[in-house]
């Protein structure tokens, strides 16, 4: 078992799939010669050549459109959108094109592609390069949405996404690129739509994903050590399909639920999950579900301000403790 950074896991996951299937092609801005602005794609051009790993102009609509046209005619493209904030300039493809082509054509058109993108804050890039926008795409029937938190999950979920016959939006977290984790040798293929219990516990369920998953875990350890509160932490990993079974079973055991979300509260993914829990497991709850989110603000750039905005280990721990005490 080797230790790998989350950053290197991206290239490893893409390489694993390109090696396996010659129909997998990869396009995006600065991804080939430069190896990606976050150095997530270093070595792919050298390994797979310029016909499969293609630098594009700054044309997000062309990137998305070309990926779709290639997907519907037999290729399995992976498209990079450098920052997820840029979804806003090519949203037509996410909202109107990829997800609707199969339905509108009664199954004639297929769209097996992956859009991977750098999502999230903690790197002080300010309001237009730091958002967590999983909810922008989660609401669209026809898309699948994943957000891994560990290097191993990056490889395994990348493989699952590339092999999936539907359009998958793959959110990498910028704040995790430098983080490290064990990644086994050999092929890794994970399953979309599976949450993972990263820490079993009895007193409450904490749901998180991406950068918020390690923070939720750290908060749970702190609560255990300082207050003897035993929290179950679930890394949701995949928002569509959504593993409600794992979540509902956990809530059934703990009777309390918290979400930790990097997005502002309104229409964040946690709201949807909480509504499902309330509809389907209301009588198992001992208290109200609580959502821990960023405030209703554009994200600021300065270190101190950005840190205040994002759910921190302390804020998560304090919120959980106070809610359980009352």
């Amino acid at each position: 078992m080797a230790e790998l950074t989350y950053r290197d896991a991206v290239a490893r996951g893409i390489a694993q799939e390109m090696q396996r299937d010659p129909d997998v092609v990869f396009l995006g801005e600065d991804i080939a010669k430069a190896g990606g602005v976050f150095k997530t794609t270093v070595g792919l051009l050298e390994q797979f050549g310029p016909l499969r790993v293609r630098d594009t102009p700054i044309s997000e609509q062309a990137i998305m459109g070309a990926a779709m046209g290639a997907a519907m005619t037999g290729l399995k493209p992976i498209a990079e959108i450098m920052f997820s904030d840029f979804f806003a300039v090519c949203f037509d493809y996410l909202a109107n094109q990829f997800p609707k082509s199969r339905y509108m054509t009664a199954g004639q058109v297929k769209c097996p592609l992956v859009v991977r993108t750098a999502n999230g804050a903690s790197v002080r890039f300010g309001a237009q390069h730091s958002q967590s926008v999983e909810n922008w795409v989660m609401m669209i029937p026809g898309l699948k949405v994943v957000a891994p938190s560990t290097p191993r999950d990056v490889v395994g979920l990348m493989a699952a996404s590339v092999r999936d016959p539907d359009p998958v939006i793959f959110f990498e977290h910028k704040g995790l690129y430098a983080s490290k984790g064990e990644v086994p040798e050999g092929e890794i293929v994970d399953t979309l739509g599976t949450a993972r219990i990263v820490r079993p516990g009895k007193n409450a369920t904490i749901l998180a994903l991406a950068l918020m998953a390690p923070r939720a875990l750290a908060a749970a350890e702190k609560l255990q050590a300082e207050h003897g509160i035993d929290c179950e932490v679930i890394d949701v990993r995949s928002l569509v399909p959504l593993d409600m079974q794992t979540i509902l079973e956990s809530v059934g055991r703990t009777s309390r639920v918290f979400t930790v979300e990097e997005n502002p509260r309104l229409c964040g993914w946690g709201g949807e999950i909480v509504s499902l829990i309330v509809e389907e497991a209301f009588f198992k709850l001992d208290g109200p579900p609580v959502r821990i989110t960023t405030p209703h603000i554009p994200l600021p750039a300065a270190e101190g301000l950005e840190d205040l905005a994002l759910p921190s280990v302390n804020r998560i721990a304090d919120t959980v403790r106070k809610a359980l005490e009352t």
Binding site: I63, G65, A66, G69, A70, M72, T73, Q97
Partner: peptide, 15 residues
């Protein structure tokens, strides 16, 4: 919207 999509289909043939 279909102009870039058409490019992708042509890319596929080329590839």
């Amino acid at each position: 919207a279909h102009i870039p999509i058409a490019c992708g289909a042509a890319w596929s043939a080329q590839y």
